[in-house]
Computed example of a mutant assay.
Amino acid sequence: MSKLIKPVDYKPLLTMRQTEQGIKLIKDFFQQNLSTELRLHRVTAPLFVLKGLGINDDLNGVERPVTFPIKDLGDAEAEVVHSLAKWKRLTLAEYNIEPGYGVYADMNAIRADEELDNLHSLYVDQWDWEMVMTREQRNLDFLKDIVRRIYAAIRRTEYLVCESYSVIKPFLPSEIHFIHSEDLLQMYPDKDVKERENLICKKYGAVFIIGIGDKLSDGKPHDGRAPDYDDWTTPNSDGRKGLNGDILIWYPTLNRAVELSSMGIRVDKEALLRQLKLTGQESRVNLYFHKKLLADELPLSIGGGIGQSRLCLVLLHKAHLGEIQASIWPEDMIKECEEMGMAII
Rank of each mutant, 00 (worst) to 15 (best):
L4Y: 02
I5D: 05
K11G: 00
P12R: 00
L13V: 03
M16S: 14
E20K: 07
Q21A: 09
G22T: 01
I23Y: 03
L34V: 07
T44G: 13
A45H: 15
F48T: 11
G52S: 00
L53K: 14
G54Y: 05
D58M: 08
G61A: 08
E63N: 13
T67E: 14
D75K: 06
S83G: 12
K86D: 06
W87K: 07
L90M: 15
I97V: 14
I97K: 13
I97G: 10
I97N: 08
E98T: 13
P99Y: 10
N108I: 15
N108S: 15
A112V: 10
E114D: 15
E115M: 11
L116I: 11
D117W: 04
L122E: 07
L122D: 11
Q126K: 10
D128F: 08
E130I: 14
M133E: 11
M133F: 14
N139M: 15
V147G: 01
V147Q: 07
I150E: 09
I150L: 13
A152S: 13
A153L: 02
I154M: 07
R155W: 02
E158M: 04
S164H: 03
F171L: 04
S174C: 04
I176D: 00
L185H: 01
L185Y: 05
E195I: 02
Y204M: 03
I209Y: 01
I210L: 12
G211R: 02
G211H: 03
G211N: 05
D218H: 11
G219M: 12
P221S: 08
D223Q: 08
G224V: 10
A226Q: 11
Y229P: 06
D230R: 06
W232L: 07
T233Q: 12
P235L: 10
N236E: 12
S237P: 07
G245W: 03
R256W: 01
A257C: 15
V258W: 03
V258Y: 04
E259I: 10
L260H: 05
D268H: 11
Q275E: 13
L276K: 01
K277A: 10
E282L: 06
V285K: 10
K292N: 13
L293M: 14
L294G: 04
A295M: 15
P299D: 15
P299V: 15
G303I: 08
G304R: 08
G305A: 09
I306E: 06
Q308H: 05
S309Q: 07
S309A: 13
R310A: 03
L311W: 04
L321M: 06
G322W: 00
E323Y: 00
A326D: 14
E336D: 12
E338A: 05
I345K: 14
